[in-house]
Design a protein around this nucleic acid. Structure first.
Length: 432
RNA sequence: GGAGAGAUGGCCGAGUAGGCUGAAGGCGCUCGCCUGCUAAGCGAGUAUAGGGUUUGUAGCUCUAUCGCGGGUUCGAAUCCCGCUCUCUCCGCCA
């Protein structure tokens, strides 16, 4: 196959019913009928063309020998020339079939893990646990989109003048708070959880987007650079996971833990009217991401640890949250199992997603061709890739403003952030 | 932006008047031998993907791959065209 096989083709061939069954959980029916048909054709023609190539190889050698011996090879040459035409025709067919098969497979999502609740949408999600208590206010709490402008640390009006809707200007202590959260997250994950800090390009090529599964299906969700095959990263998951694309890693080096801060750019197509106020849903937001490349046998263990790593920063910040296991209908395209972390947001009077931690198993590894050698001589296998927000920075700031607000509209700075804020313990209008 | 050079296996590095080179040689690595230990030495092995066969991710076999794509040819790592990337010099710039 030329492109990016997503599900294991051999597995699909030998277990079509299981695959159909699994895809049904994701509301996909009959997705593979056509594929299996194409596959049969493909293999048939492949056998033919390889046979002809075998003939061409030996006949060409024969021609060489004849010529060296000073004999005439004209007849054989003519024959091979004819075969060459046939080969070209069949090769074209093979290529066409591969293109069609890729087109199908690239649009088929990952198969859900057996522990994932089956259901059509988020209604079937499963709450796993809660941490912390939502704060009780003895005054009318404000939303961050009122608190921020009130303190003159968030400026939505001027941001829209600069860039339009879904952008925010941070000012003074607000800007510093954003930066403090970024640094705090990176410090915790690198020094306490063993992740290696990476600084990545914020623009990547289409192969990367294909590798992690944003392309080809979700092109409209991203910002593409005019006139180039380049995209603004929608999440650091893309550059981090693709870091070892097309490589065979040494099994002794696994697992690999990466963390990176990047801004994230999303078109938010289809989200018109949702979360229009505040900094919850922006075209540009900051995030510290966690990515792991692991051996298949312990990727689920690693998912639990990764989720716990993301949870810990919320605990350290004292932000109440809950952990939700997404159902088959609510999971992302590339994921086999996803936990969402949802932080308490007083303005919504509910928990709001602040992190999404997924095990993609070998789905992305196949697309991006990331393999490892279990033992020195063993044949390469696909790694499992995991990713999780560790966590979204903008939403963290929103949560801090709302959960730590005081009656006078000031904000108490969470203790762990004060070293990052020059010792500032409270954001006030006067001290902004 | 202007001028030039180059892209070969895990690495280094041969290979251009096209033929049996998946690819010399070296290093590294694996296994075995040897050695009081270590080092050195000796021997063997050491790319990836796909198809066929098969109970089989074993074996056997075929095809493909010398940056990517196309062309010429009976036959291309070797010739031609396009692209990408890397490096050097000049200019410019944070």
């Amino acid at each position: 196959m030329g492109g990016w096989p997503m599900l294991d083709i051999k597995y699909i061939r030998s277990h079509p019913e299981q695959v159909e069954e699994a895809l049904k959980k994701r509301n996909l029916v009959g997705a593979l009928d056509q594929f299996l048909d194409l596959d049969r054709q493909w293999r048939k023609i492949l056998v033919q063309v390889e046979d002809l190539k075998k003939f061409r190889n030996s006949a060409s050698q024969e021609v060489g020998k004849l010529k060296k011996a000073g004999q005439d090879a004209g007849e054989l040459q003519d024959k091979v020339r004819q075969v060459g035409q046939e080969i070209k025709a069949l090769d074209d067919q093979v290529k066409e079939l591969e293109t069609s098969m890729d087109a199908i497979l690239l649009n088929v999502p990952n198969l859900p893990h057996e522990s994932v609740p089956v259901g059509p949408d988020e209604e079937s999600n499963l709450e796993m646990r809660r941490w912390g208590e939502p704060p009780k206010f003895d005054f009318e709490p404000q939303a961050h989109w009122d608190l921020g402008p009130g303190l003159d640390i968030l400026d939505f009006e001027r941001a829209s003048r600069l860039s339009g809707a879904r952008f925010t200007v941070y000012k003074g202590a607000g800007a510093r708070l954003e930066r403090a959260v970024i640094n705090f997250y990176l410090d915790v994950h690198t020094s306490k959880h063993g992740y290696r800090e990476i600084w990545t390009p914020f623009m990547v090529n289409a192969d990367c987007m294909m590798g992690t599964g944003q392309l080809p299906k979700f092109a409209e969700d991203m910002f593409k650079i005019e006139g180039r095959e380049m995209y603004l990263v929608p999440t650091a998951e893309v550059p981090l996971t693709n870091l070892h694309r097309e490589e065979i890693l040494d099994g002794a080096d696994l697992p690999l833990y990466f963390t990176a801060y990047t801004p994230c750019f999303r078109a938010e197509a289809g989200a018109a009217g949702r979360d229009t106020r505040g900094i919850i849903r922006q075209h540009q937001f900051n995030k510290v991401e966690l990515v792991k490349l692991t051996r298949p046998e312990n990727s689920y263990e690693e998912l639990e640890k990764l989720t716990a790593d993301a949870e810990e920063v919320l605990q350290l910040l004292g932000l109440p949250y809950r952990v939700v296991l997404l159902s088959t209908g609510d999971m992302g395209f590339s994921s086999a199992k996803t936990y969402d972390l949802e932080v308490w947001m007083p303005s919504y009077n509910t928990y709001k997603e602040i992190s999404s931690c997924s095990n993609c198993e070998d789905f992305q590894a196949r697309r991006a061709n990331i393999r490892y050698r279990p033992e020195p001589k063993a044949r390469p296998q696909y790694v499992h890739t995991l990713n999780g927000s560790g966590v979204a920075v903008g939403r963290t700031v929103a949560a801090i403003l709302e959960n730590y607000q005081q009656a006078d509209g000031s904000i108490v700075v969470p203790e762990v952030l004060r070293p990052y804020m020059g010792g500032l313990d409270k954001i006030t209008r006067e001290g902004r």
